[in-house]
Amino acid sequence: MISCQNVALGYGARVVVEDLSFTVDAGDYLCVVGENGAGKSTLVKTLLGLQKPLRGKISLDGITAGDIGYLPQQTQIQKDFPASVEEIVLSGCLARKKFLPFYSAEDKATSARHMELLKIKSLARRCFRELSGGQQQRVLLARALCAAKKILLLDEPIAGLDPEAAADMYKIISELNRRGTTIIMISHDVDEAVKYATHILRLGDKIFFGTSEDFRHA
């Protein structure tokens, strides 16, 4: 589904990751780990096409922009942006509507379902900027779920969630994975990552790519 061959990532003259090769097949659950500044977010942004790889080739087979759900690590959403939770979650459905100007009843049902799943139904009419950090995280996750038809790219989804919500999150993600959604998730929680993921990619000085089975032994 996704394959990277000898890719170098970075910004302008600055190389962050060198000589990276890995593949992701449909149905995989890849967890990306590595210390701060290792280039995890950079990798995700490059996969999304938000920036270009410095060298090498990344090929995405059978996925178009409309199939990808994305949870950014930090968004540059301004503090004073007036938007309700409902408006934001619904905007996740936009990916599928190339030319249709309005949301259908089906879109509304999809977004309601995901708000239910993430326990933010009661916040639907609240203003996004007045929510707590963890609540905001769930809203953005619900938006990502609305957009994810085949693949979900999550940049530290559990950052800022309370332990219970984090456990829920892991459950929701692996449930989605069981139903066939490919997952690429960045996490600092290596123990949990190994428990749920099928593959691990570690960025940093020594790049590792393999199944979580191999990672545990290595």
Partner: peptide, 23 residues
């Protein structure tokens, strides 16, 4: 404006997400 309303919202709210979603 009415036709593009939701897209204008998405682009204004979070440009990266909108771009990732193929807008």
């Amino acid at each position: 404006f009415v036709l593009f309303y939701h897209k204008i919202f998405a682009v204004t709210f979070d440009e990266d997400f909108a771009r990732a979603a193929g807008l």
